[in-house]
Design a protein around this nucleic acid. Structure first.
Lengths: 247, 247
DNA sequence: GTTTGGCATTAACATAGGTTACACCGCGCC
DNA sequence: GGCGCGGTGTAACCTATGTTAATGCCAAAC
């Protein structure tokens, strides 16, 4: 896999972002902050389209995603793809509660990504030491589970219209918790095909529903930026409930 | 909740079944077997239709399901129900890897069930002691995750026909691992509505697909018993792969 | 600056699956 | 033995979503 260091100027910004993301899940004490700070120096960039974790791979290299988006996915033997969940900047990657865990899904960079290995995260999960950092790790795992549960609900019992809204709201809230939302608008740096593979729809239909939402003035888009215009109404329509753990 | 002891005669059989189920996931040493044996004395029966674990409830009372079937489910505010996973006899219930875990789904008895509290299971998860019983607990959790992943794949990217076959094969393999399959046939003690709510289909369509499978002589049914006639062909059609962890 | 290729958009058409409604069947209950 | 009820089986019809294919747009590559 091709890996490079990010540009010098970026480095500082990303490191700060990483520390904030960790602290957001559970405030770090001084010692932990130092360890995390050191780990963040190891950050690496990977181009879009690369596989970050292969299905079946042992999960022993936890990372923090500092920049870019990734997905967890599986592919049927005839090529149909299902996206299970999204990994956003500030999210953990390759975490595992089980001692001998193995990846159930392949993890895949949607955009160029920057990530930093964060071995402490799994260590803390394994040893069950009680610390802010282990809180952070458990929080991340716990959120992943919540999102997966929502994904099942969407796919099983919601219409395309509801599903799309529900997913957009999830993005909104997750990004907002990371300070990446401005007046209801945020960046979704990927194609409608990705959205379709997450929602279990065809690209054509995903596009139709997007058009409808625009016509109804529930969302606005330009380039990769989406703006959710009426959050309350959208949440109502899609039976969406904000995860309390998003803080 | 109404709880009663099962009949005397049953008690012995169910206890043996419970011990075998635990041992199947990770062979017990003598001491653990004694503890488990004692715990199994506390078994209780709950009538069909009762909620065993409420959504949001803290997961601190792990149990072993000894008899009957249960489901984990969520319900949308307009009443649409989605079943996330099934709990079969011999499966664990209320397990949680996280220290402060809370149920994401409501767990619900499909039939009258008998279950035994098994506090040791969570203890072992929490303390990370290395023992056969903790292997068993992790195995159960790990299987749950696998099945949930398969559920997403089914709902997102498979046709009704494929979905149904895939789920039937999953039942087959899980029950077979517990010795409850005889020449490809096993008991599914619940209505087609349950199947529909698991597969994200209407009951009418579930019925249609069942008819089709019968016409194609891929399955046979009588009363609540199903027989999968050609396992290899079925697996091929539904892109089904047996979980290696089923032993 | 032209070409090219990926992506969004749109239209026409096809179909899987949903909805409603009703008949039927077995079973417990009076 | 008749009645009521929950479940299965069907049919007719409807619609959400898939498929195919064509068009246009824009940005990167040449």
């Amino acid at each position: 896999m091709i890996k490079t260091k990010p540009a010098q100027g970026e480095l500082h910004r990303l490191r700060e972002f990483g520390l904030r993301a960790l602290a957001h899940c559970g405030a770090l004490d001084e010692e932990e902050e130092k360890t995390a700070h050191a780990a963040l120096a190891d950050m690496q960039s990977v181009p879009a389209g690369h596989e970050l974790i292969a299905e079946g791979e042992p999960l022993n290299r936890p990372c923090l995603l500092l920049e870019g988006w990734a997905v967890r996915q599986r592919v049927l033997s005839d090529g149909r793809r299902q996206i299970f969940s999204f990994v956003l900047p500030g999210d953990g990657l390759g975490l595992c509660a089980r001692p001998d865990g193995v990846a159930l899904h392949s993890t895949f960079a949607l955009t160029p990504v920057t990530l930093a290995p964060m071995p402490l995260l799994n260590q803390r999960l394994q040893t069950r030491s009680k610390s802010p950092l282990s809180d952070a790790a458990w929080n991340m795992i716990s959120l992943e589970e919540t999102f997966l549960s929502n994904q099942v609900m969407r796919l099983g019992r919601q219409s395309a219209y509801e599903r799309l809204i529900h997913l957009l709201l999830e993005f909104h809230d997750r990004l907002k918790a990371k300070g990446a939302v401005e007046d209801g608008s945020f960046v979704m740096p990927f194609t409608q095909e990705v959205l379709s593979d997450a929602l279990g729809l065809s690209t054509v239909h995903t596009n139709r529903v997007l058009q409808q939402l625009r016509r109804e003035r529930l969302i606005q888009t330009h380039a990769a930026t989406v703006r959710l215009v009426d959050l309350v109404l959208l949440a109502e329509v899609a039976d969406y409930h904000r995860s309390p753990r998003l803080g």
